[in-house]
Design a protein around this nucleic acid. Structure first.
Length: 783
DNA sequence: AGCCCTAAGCTTTTT
DNA sequence: GCTTAGGGCT
């Protein structure tokens, strides 16, 4: 199947290198000396240290074009790896633009994982798999592990499968197969980690499945044990380029080193100061030791920044200077002037959100000597996603348009995974995990007992679950409604399976048919929860996506790796996202809220990884500041609710590390004239760099008394908005059926009340869940 | 088999 | 404080 189509890429070069060489090199004139240096050093190992905003992608894509242009390689002989599909897409389109033509043949420009899938499908048998193996996502992985753990009679309450999954992941990140896990790790998961790891791998092989980590691990194993295969690819991939090298884990690093081992034509681009994925196995060490691994490597530093103003760069540099063991880079810019980084403290998270909301509204018209900013030029970058809610709540009330970037991905949604499971079982009836997922979805009267019977039946006879289920039906091991429905499902599965091979049946139609005839669509149509319409919408979208693929198999192969959540909603909106999600992006104005000890830097990071953890957090701070082009506003609060408990917060250490001369301390207008806030603000305004003084304020008896009082009832700062809302709420407790008004969604009728959340059918905006205090009875509207 | 209640947990996230 | 998963109950 398609694994062989893919290999065509090896054969036909779609672009004649001679034709390319005939053209000039205008793309080189566009580069600064450092970039040009990096682009022109085509042979041998090159490490490109590219600071934030220094034109890294430009250099990388120019390098590809230069390789083609000088005739050193054909498009299909260049291996370029990225971490995300988005980055891969971006590179592809930029290479195309530089060449001035669409290139069909850059088959090896992609993510580590997508490239490994291609390779592994070709060589699957070398690790005991068939080339049509399925790729499990983390959910499948977890369910599988849970089964193993329970089968071993282990209390999965005390030893959560989740923890085991984490351990195995880390081992795979380090390219350790079960027999290669070092003795020092033997204590993992109650001394039985290695044992379960081995079992898990065996089970995956039985299922003809791999998890994400396996894609890399298996390829490393194959390269290590089959010289002929490795040699073949060393010849094919004449030049290797790696983006975001600081994010590679050990397995990826070994994979690269094996492939580059012959010709050593490898160019790694990265920034040690932007390594923020250590917690999921990335090794900054990989970039720090590049010169040792590739002696004679040329190291090029891109330090001229085209993004930010001098103050912003200086602030970022000031913070990152606190890290040990950097490769050392100092960003500079030709840009003049600009605003200092702004720093402001607030009473609590809500106050912070309110201030930022007001500031954004003011910024649209131009404020504090700055130019007007459009909403889509503004981003709020948070450390942890739970910080987002305060902003969403606030922006919803004041009607400020925003978009949240990140969040649950399309293919992680329940309905999408269910639908995919149906497709999986139809395409490969041996997919036990998928069958398990859908056998009783929608409800077919098959409970735990029935499923156990099927499993026993399958295991005892060495059958797959589908076959086992069929046997169980034939042998009348199941009774009543469940048995009849199961028989019907099995019949359907067989029928649909036949249709996948039928050229007359369009696969898009087939997909729709599967969802309809299985009763899955109906299940959501009958569902009265407010999410149901959205889920049906998603299912429709899924089926639409199918059109882009040849058949169901093709779709399933790609979807787990490639389908992402690009929301195409456009328009003027403020972006809200995590700092991690912001890497690689830039915005004219950036807000960085929540710079408090324990939140940012995160307590857990410091507890688990000590100094290393703090350093990674510091890099995150660096990433955050360097996202800003013109205006960067950092804030922290005195009080924050952490897991429901009110806690007094100290400004995080990175606040102190901001170089004073590049910072302007703002005081929110009209607040803190006195009262509780004044203590906190005093510390901020006057003694920013004197932690002792701050500590005194926060530890004073008065402060602690205040804390004690606040624990009973959080004190709200008086504010006009809030008073209005509270008053209205006092006079109108809501009732179902009541006609109400919401500032953003307009008029609607209350459908249901759940605690302080109301489900409202709005006349224009549809059914939404809204917090009660943002809604007023239509009759009470004061105008 | 389905509903309700309690308990635990709880960054960051790609593939 | 909020969500979610699993156990226990009907």
């Amino acid at each position: 199947m398609s694994s062989f189509d893919e290999m065509d890429a090896f054969e036909g070069a779609s672009l004649s290198s001679r034709a390319m060489a005939a053209r000039g090199t205008p793309y080189l004139d566009d580069l600064n000396p450092a970039q040009r240096d990096a682009v022109e050093a085509l042979d041998g190992p090159v490490l490109m240290l590219a600071g934030a905003g220094t034109g890294k992608t430009k250099a990388l894509t120019s390098r590809i074009v230069h390789l083609l242009n000088t005739g050193r390689a054909r498009p299909n002989e260049i291996l370029s790896v990225t971490f995300t599909n988005k980055a891969a897409r971006e590179m592809k389109s930029r290479v195309g633009r530089l060449l001035g033509q669409q290139i069909e043949g850059m088959p090896w420009l992609g993510t580590f994982h997508s490239i490994c899938v291609k390779l592994l499908r070709r060589h699957a048998e070398l690790v005991g798999l068939k080339s049509n193996f399925t790729i499990l996502d983390t959910d499948d992985q977890l369910r599988l592990l849970k089964q193993l753990v329970r089968a071993a009679g282990i209390d999965d309450k005390r030893w959560p499968a989740r923890q085991l999954a984490g351990v195995i992941d880390q081992w795979k990140n380090r390219a350790w197969t079960p027999d290669a896990v070092p003795v020092a790790e033997a204590g993992a998961y109650n001394d039985r980690g290695v044992e379960f790891y081995a079992q898990y791998q065996a089970r995956l092989k039985e299922l003809n499945a791999v998890d994400f980590g396996d894609l890399l691990l298996h390829m490393v194993t194959i390269f290590q044990t089959h010289d002929d295969v490795l040699e073949q690819y060393r010849r094919w991939f004449r030049y290797i380029l790696v983006d975001e090298y600081q994010d590679t884990n050990v397995a990826q690093y070994m994979w690269l080193r094996l492939l580059a081992g012959g010709h050593r034509n490898i160019c790694c681009v990265g920034d040690d100061d932007q390594s923020i994925y250590g917690w999921r196995g990335a090794e900054v060490g990989n970039i720090l030791r590049f010169e040792k691994d590739f002696p004679g490597a040329k190291v090029v530093r891109l330090e001229q920044n085209y993004r930010s103003t001098p103050h912003i760069l200086a602030a970022a540099s000031g913070v990152i200077r606190g890290n040990q063991g950097r490769l050392g880079k100092e960003l500079w810019t030709d840009a003049q002037d600009g605003h200092k980084v702004r720093l402001i403290g607030h009473w609590d998270g809500e106050e912070e959100a309110r201030w930022i909301g007001e500031e954004i509204e003011a910024m649209q018209g131009g404020t504090r000597g700055m130019r007007p900013f459009g909403l889509d030029e503004i981003a709020i970058l948070v450390r942890a996603s739970h910080q987002m809610r305060a902003f969403e709540d606030r922006f919803l009330t004041i009607g400020l348009p925003y978009r949240v970037i990140g969040g649950p991905r399309f293919y992680e949604r329940m309905e999408i995974r269910d639908a995919m499971a149906y497709f999986r079982v139809v395409v490969s009836p041996a997919d036990d995990l998928a069958f398990e997922r859908i056998v009783n979805t929608p409800k077919r009267g098959l409970g735990d007992k029935a499923i156990q019977t099927i499993q026993r039946c399958a295991r005892d006879n060495g059958l797959t679950l589908v076959e086992g289920a069929r046997l169980a039906v034939e042998d009348k091991l199941l009774s009543g409604k469940g048995a009849a429905q199961l028989a019907f499902l099995l019949e359907n599965l067989t029928r649909w399976g036949r249709m996948t091979g039928d050229a007359d049946v369009d696969h898009t139609e087939l997909a729709g048919m599967i969802l309809d005839e299985s009763g899955y669509t109906e299940m959501w149509q009958n569902d009265k929860t407010p999410e149901a319409p959205g889920r049906l919408e998603n299912l429709k979208e899924l089926v639409n996506h199918l059109e882009e693929f040849e058949n169901l198999q093709g779709f399933l192969e790609h979807v787990s790796l490639v389908m992402d959540n690009e929301s195409d909603e456009s328009g003027q909106k403020v972006s809200i996202m995590t700092l991690h999600a912001a890497k690689g992006l830039e915005f004219p104005a950036v807000f960085l809220p929540g710079w408090e000890d324990g939140l940012f830097p995160s307590q857990r990071s410091m507890d688990e990884s000590g100094l290393k953890g703090v350093e990674e957090e510091r890099r995150l701070a660096y990433v955050g500041i360097t996202r800003a082009e013109e205006c960067c506003t950092i804030s922290f609060v005195s009080n924050r609710r952490v897991f429901g408990q009110w806690q007094s917060q100290m400004p995080g250490r990175f606040v102190d590390e901001l170089p004073e001369e590049h910072v302007e301390v703002l005081t929110p207008p009209g607040l803190y004239g006195g009262g509780f806030g004044a203590a906190g603000m005093g510390a901020v305004g006057s003694d920013l760099h004197d932690r002792a003084a701050e500590a005194n304020v926060y530890n004073s008896p008065g402060w602690r008394r205040l804390q004690a009082r606040r624990d009973q009832r959080p004190i709200s700062q008086p504010s006009e908005t809030r008073n209005t809302v509270i008053d209205l709420q006092a006079v109108s407790a809501h009732t179902v059926g009541e006609r109400v008004f919401h500032q953003k969604f307009g008029y609607g009728r209350i459908e249901a009340i759940e605690g302080d959340k109301l489900e409202i059918a709005f006349e224009k905006a549809g059914v939404k869940k809204v917090v009660a205090k943002y809604v007023m009875a239509a009759d009470d509207i004061p105008f």
